[in-house]
Nucleic acid binder design. Sequence first.
DNA 1: TTGTACGCGTTATCAA
DNA 2: TTGATAACGCGTACAA
Lengths: 330, 330
Amino acid sequence: MSVNIKELAKIIGVSISTISKALNDKSDISEELKIKIRNAAIEYSYSPNPIAKRLVAKKTNTLGVFILNRDNIPLKHYFEFQFLDGIIREANLYNNDILIFTNTNDLSYKKSYIDECKERKLDGAIFLGLREDDPFFENIQTSYIPVCAVDTEIYGENVSFVSSDNKGGIIKALEYLWELGHRDIFFISGCQNAFVSNERLYGYKSFMESKTLFNKEYIFEGNYSFESGIRAGEQLLNKKITAVVSSSDMMALGMMQYLKKNNIRIPDDISIIGFDDIISCEHSEPSLTTIAQNVVTMGRKSVDIVLNGNKSPILVETELIIRNSCKKIN
Amino acid sequence: MSVNIKELAKIIGVSISTISKALNDKSDISEELKIKIRNAAIEYSYSPNPIAKRLVAKKTNTLGVFILNRDNIPLKHYFEFQFLDGIIREANLYNNDILIFTNTNDLSYKKSYIDECKERKLDGAIFLGLREDDPFFENIQTSYIPVCAVDTEIYGENVSFVSSDNKGGIIKALEYLWELGHRDIFFISGCQNAFVSNERLYGYKSFMESKTLFNKEYIFEGNYSFESGIRAGEQLLNKKITAVVSSSDMMALGMMQYLKKNNIRIPDDISIIGFDDIISCEHSEPSLTTIAQNVVTMGRKSVDIVLNGNKSPILVETELIIRNSCKKIN
DNA sequence: TTGTACGCGTTATCAA
DNA sequence: TTGATAACGCGTACAA
């Protein structure tokens, strides 16, 4: 099919080591020979076998990405899936390959993820959807290869994480509502004990307390689903609320649907802000103001952390996307 | 970190070839020795270096997946991204790794995709979002490694494709509407000259012609976007239509929004059926009846084609998901 | 049944 | 400046 270094050497009548050096631009080869060899390499479409390179380099330039799916939902509906975009791009930028592992169905991991990496000689690993009660959580903390988790708080010698600035994002939303004159602001929380949920809840708490407006009756604990947004809406009917901040767009959309059915107008009667910026936000009626997560940057940062052995967590800025679901209060 | 075959050999006092044979369950090693060696392998956590294996096997067990993004939209909004789910699962099932390539931003390919595979010694390739006017289309057709495209019609010695049964899907929708009594059925087509669009349009044409109902005034050419669905809605106002079949959910949803704003009730005044079964279908008002594509199966089949060198195209069954956007006509 | 020796395609060391 | 050779870790004829 294509020649290898030995054949190319024979063709141009030099040794294989000369070719290797020339192509790797080593200093101890004359410029003219380098040119000659480079041209020959192109002519005979020679390119070094990456497998052989990896064998001698003892480095695979490959990162493992573990997509840890909680409820066996299809990947396409799985939020963490989106991080792949940035991960792939950033990894390619540094000539790293990524290998994706999934734990649904067939592969319920008995082997620890880190062992999997070890066997495959991977240079690092990224975890999406990692839970603190994962059987291998501690095993990951003590990993000998660099590891980064996305949206999971985890610390260790070679371990760090990246997440959105969840707390800051919620506060942005609340400040916006505050400027609009809202004081009675409801909060839809995500599942408790998850890092991002806690951070968002914490953002709500601290802002509201700073304005001495905090009322824990104004918090509903959902589970990020559309349906739990509907249930949150039910809670709202008998409360004097003018605005809602939701920990996810899905829940905000669910609530919106419920409210509209009950003849509550948005944003005239109630203002709503979501979190994530999923595509439906643009198309809902009214379109949904939301805190956008920069998933591409999050993905990129996660590979940066692994590649640079970075130890301090990274919080990625969120952005308030103003649409039509909020209104000034009179 | 962990032992290699040579060290393990020294530890248990046998030769490396004995270990290799024992672990690969060759017939010329005694059963007791095999057991002894397997146990030792576990004890010293030995596992063969996959890189070295690949070097000698001259086979990487790795498939390239090219995600060819048309308009540089983020991957998360990119429909083809969903095929990854099935691709990853099926590849893992057969102990194959996948390598993902993207052509957005940084990497606008000058090198042909097949050359990329060649350099990386990949065993096969899968193309998502491949267009017929791609500069390397012909190059792919004549690929020497097995190739499968998803949703692109392509033929070649080692080349095949997988798609939904788009024509059959549309016909399913039309038959359903027919049973419901609809006769004046509008069709929102996707961008012309794309394979799937043509198939869906062809399904509409042939069904309508078979009922001698065909009227080309009843076709609107959109571009799969929400906005083009709105434009399709505008076309509808002055036509006597009772039902609409759309080539995508996004367009159906766009049309639905427009129609509702213009006080046309769904499904009372107009029945609507979409295509794809995106998540928003469940949450729209009314929820949207649609032709579901089985993206997981499509992904799986694409790797089957590559792995088995299958030559005949595969069309995956679609499924009519009945929700609340269609109604019997009186 | 077990072991020796070579080859897979590179890079790196050291001698020429 | 160039080239011979060992090493990377494994599989596999072939010899013992």
